[in-house]
Design a protein around this nucleic acid. Sequence first.
DNA 1: TGTACATCAGTGAACGCGCGTTCACTGATGTAC
DNA 2: TGTACATCAGTGAACGCGCGTTCACTGATGTAC
Lengths: 204, 204
Amino acid sequence: MENVTTTARERNPRGAGTRLRDEIVDAGIALIDATDDSNALTLRGIARQAGISAPSIYPHFADVTAVTDAVLERSFQQLEQAVTNAIEAHPVPSDALMAGCSAYVRFGWEHRARYRLMFAAKGFAPNAGETFDQVERAIIRCVQAGASVSTDPHADAFLLWVAMHGIATLEKPDRADYLRLGPLDRPALVHTLVMRLARLAAGA
Amino acid sequence: MENVTTTARERNPRGAGTRLRDEIVDAGIALIDATDDSNALTLRGIARQAGISAPSIYPHFADVTAVTDAVLERSFQQLEQAVTNAIEAHPVPSDALMAGCSAYVRFGWEHRARYRLMFAAKGFAPNAGETFDQVERAIIRCVQAGASVSTDPHADAFLLWVAMHGIATLEKPDRADYLRLGPLDRPALVHTLVMRLARLAAGA
DNA sequence: TGTACATCAGTGAACGCGCGTTCACTGATGTAC
DNA sequence: TGTACATCAGTGAACGCGCGTTCACTGATGTAC
């Protein structure tokens, strides 16, 4: 016998178990992104998208809200990853701040329904604050580099985040052109908002 | 006979007809505001709220989307009215701009689910632009009064509107306090955003 | 003025649908001896 | 090595529910003569 040393034998999962769990979350993300409609995110719809029967979800999730929670959690991780990657790609602090904010807005525009759902449901997800912290640290680095005259990076990060959230929640440019708001030039919008709200020096 | 002069006699509605139509829209607004959930805005739910049977809606609306469209249209009118009232209550342009923006955000916070639905559905409603125009005109008056140094009121109005939209879409303060973003002080937030985005003079 | 009737607002019952969830099941795969 | 069996991933059928919509209807109210 090989189980003499371990008290309670831990049965190995046969592989497909945890793999299907991930596939279900993938299917949920694919579904809401493809339909652009958060109401399409149903248990049966996710099962259909994943190519499995509806009951097959239950061994991996307690109920439908557990599935959507997992979708939201992974979405927040993706958002934070996108912002982090953009920031780390630029050594100059002001460039990094611009790139991070731009990546944030791009995520909102490229995953409209999902982004809205992330910030619509019963408050923010627990890991939503990490992305905010990224923005705050980026502003602090700008101040340290002399590129920003902000005296309250925390407050200014909040203002900036609010404005980014406003743009991210906007319609995509090709849909909103019947409103004569002018062209939705994402880089230009982000640039101006960052300049004024993070109080960057004009010559930066 | 009295219909000799008119070719096709126009039967008078007996009063209750158009009255019920308004009551149905009222019920829809009351329902989404009370439940704080846009998914609760169903035809049967609205009928229940209005105290009538579900089929009674059909003489007044073609289908359920016609009802929600009417709810959204009235909501945009209310939003514009709230902003207009706030602006007109202040003779000093910068005060008027502040008050108008504050009223905008207050509407979003006091009618959370409804505000989100207004800006979530298939693009903006046709009359959404009027509120934006109010903000733009308020900025122009600030420039004329020497209170703002904006050189492009249209662009700045858009930036300001985006930021207001960001705050309006936020959770209400009592729900978001587990995020250490600091207190959601609506007047202070609005004040700072208006100062920087509408480029008000510091001494104003 | 009285009576028959057209017109109106609104109802109750029924339909088909997609949903979340449950239940007993079916093969496949690894393990014990 | 071979065989019986426990364990696993996943399925098909069924349930009750709320939904949008339809249909034939029921009283009430105003009008014609």
